[in-house]
Design a protein around this nucleic acid. Structure first.
Lengths: 167, 167
DNA sequence: GCAATATACTAGGACATCCAAGGGTTTGGA
DNA sequence: TCCAAACCCTTGGATGTCCTAGTATATTGC
């Protein structure tokens, strides 16, 4: 998985598509495939930075979300909605973060069905350190130009909105 | 995970970043997060289309790759390199595809270490059907305009090249 | 020619994601 | 008032991805 390929495999796939009579779908296919691959690369970088902190991206996201909540606490279902992942994924992440002493579960004051997740002080400290590391080692050198970043935000926001992520 | 949120969570995160003194990193962070989320949405659509065929995206990718190989066969390591996934992921996918009768393993004629993966006729037929479905149900209605597609291909190709995917 | 190194694949384990199903809690309409 | 429907979280199962060995085969160097 290490050595660079002599040719762009996605461009090759696009040519294959065109050669098989799917000329109209070839370019969108290439764009979609490129997004998949780019996500893979970015996730790899992020996980590498988070590893020394004992965090995965999923756990970091939850930690970061909590650190931005005024009270430092959120209901599980709220976290699930904001992170846009399945509730069971949040359960899983909270289990591990709790085992690491970074968050605690507590009862909701008025709704017995709801469980609140709350940052511990260790969790808050770690979130801050991990965020600083990600900013300096990933986001500050993303490999995208400022214009690329603007374009991506514009294109992908429209896509996500159209896909029903938000109104 | 179903109902649309009243606000864009990524735009909110970007504002949070800016409010915490990471103004330079906020936009790249938002772009990266948007890529992660977009990949998630696209993967969901693709898996939904492939499900009736009994395929996952990982298995489909391998089938499609084989169907474009002249001989219909590829060494495992070659497939791993072209799909840009870990060799063990290919082993996993081949195990399941073989169990489904879509591919077979065979010995390399000259290199005893190498295992060739070869499409069966069922595999070739299924790959064709699944590709047609993906083209009409996902790529032909990707939600990106033609200009967006061009921009994405341009930006992400440069990114992947810069990341060392290909020369 | 034989040992040391490199390469190819597989086995086992850690994580994450989703779905389906189950048990507890609230809410709203009969 | 009260019970059915809706909601919230967790458990168990299936997939996929990666990493760390471990086994087998090739190639290289002395």
């Amino acid at each position: 998985m290490g050595t660079p390929l002599p040719r762009d495999p996605i461009a090759d796939a696009q040519r294959n598509w065109e050669g098989h009579g799917w000329g109209n779908e070839a370019a969108p296919m290439a764009a979609v495939t490129a997004i998949m691959r780019t996500q893979q690369i970015l996730l790899g970088r992020i996980e590498a930075v988070l590893k020394p902190f004992g965090l995965t991206f999923a756990r970091y996201e939850l930690l970061a979300l909590l650190s931005f909540a005024r009270s430092g606490a959120l209901p599980m279902n709220k976290a699930s909605a904001l992170l846009q992942v399945h509730p069971t994924s949040v359960t899983n992440a909270v289990d591990r973060l709790q085992a690491a002493g970074l968050v605690v579960r507590s009862a909701h004051p008025t709704d017995g069905r709801t469980t609140l997740i709350e940052l511990t002080s260790e969790g808050r400290t770690l979130a801050k350190s991990a965020t600083a590391a990600l900013n300096s080692e990933v986001f500050a050198q993303s490999g995208f130009t400022d214009q690329d970043v603007d374009q991506l935000i514009r294109i992908l926001s429209a896509f996500r909105k159209n896909a029903g992520d938000f109104t």
